[in-house]
Design a protein around this nucleic acid. Structure first.
Lengths: 159, 159
DNA sequence: TATTGTTATACTCTATAACTATA
DNA sequence: TATAGTTATAGAGTATAACAATA
């Protein structure tokens, strides 16, 4: 292992992140969005932890409906991961008593997830807690939050 | 396992996601930002895969400077994870020949990461590739991208 | 034969706690 | 004693491939 000159670590700017002044407008917006997400990670972990869930489990719970069953393959699509994966995700939620598998009468290969009463109750508490956004968003004025929402809605609807 | 009535899965709206019409402006903006990130996951995996990296490894590479060494503890802060974790992250980048550890002359406990020539070369190619944002952002007009960037910059700078 | 979901397997990412070597 | 980094360990999340049950 080579040596580093003494004091070399303090020679340049304090952060190692990318220089946004050289980016295209789209790349700049994307980079900022990504950095806000990274900065909000502790917030997300804290919120999920309040319900004794991991961030992924909280997201999974939010993707189960209170009104209809979600098949395993639909669940995989909603979560954006492989079908082999959602088995374990569903297992962990089921072990917590938040949802259960039901087999479909029309096709006995299909299994669907429905929230249990405990799952519905937790879903509601989570939804209420999610009214509070992380600091980066919360610090904006309501006018800015609305404008941001409009722009992001346009972006999401363009897909 | 209980039975699900035939056809029940088609009774309600097609998606299981949260209803944004009942959210506060901040919660709505946050939810939309999060959904755009989820939708952009395949894009991020594809881009990282083009360089034979995982998304996390690509982000780690982007947080190494081309101009100064980054200590392991700084690296942990930049990546937002525990110090015990960055050892393995650095190991994998080092195994790829992208960076190497140097011991600081001033304090021999400290180890810092510097990019190798191969790491600097890949860093540059990654930075160029990152000029292309994911579809959700790319589909916006340049005016919208700039406005979005300004709002997000305000949000990030508020932290 | 094709499809739905599961299991087996393996790797990345993550944290906690114990450890080494410096300071 | 305290700090920087590592190692040991464990668990969540992820994908690929092989498998069972059903269609």
């Amino acid at each position: 292992m080579q040596r580093l000159p003494a004091g070399a670590a303090a020679a340049s700017p304090p952060k190692g992140q990318a220089d946004r002044s050289k980016m295209t407008p789209g790349a700049r917006a994307w980079n900022l969005m990504f950095e806000i997400l990274r900065a909000s990670k502790p917030f997300m972990e804290t919120v999920a932890g309040e319900f004794d869930l991991t961030p992924q489990q909280l997201y999974a719970l939010r993707n189960l409906s209170t009104e209809r069953a979600v098949t395993m393959s639909e669940f995989a699509t909603l979560l954006g991961c492989d079908a082999s994966n959602v088995t374990a995700v569903a297992d962990r939620l089921e072990a917590r008593g938040l949802c259960e598998r039901r087999s479909a009468a029309s096709d006995r290969r299909v299994k669907a997830l429905v929230l249990t009463p405990a799952g519905i109750e937790l879903y509601g508490r989570v939804a209420e807690r999610m009214q509070q956004p992380p600091p980066a968003i919360d610090n904006l004025s309501v006018a800015d939050q609305n404008e941001l929402g409009d722009l992001l809605e346009r972006a999401l609807n363009s897909l």
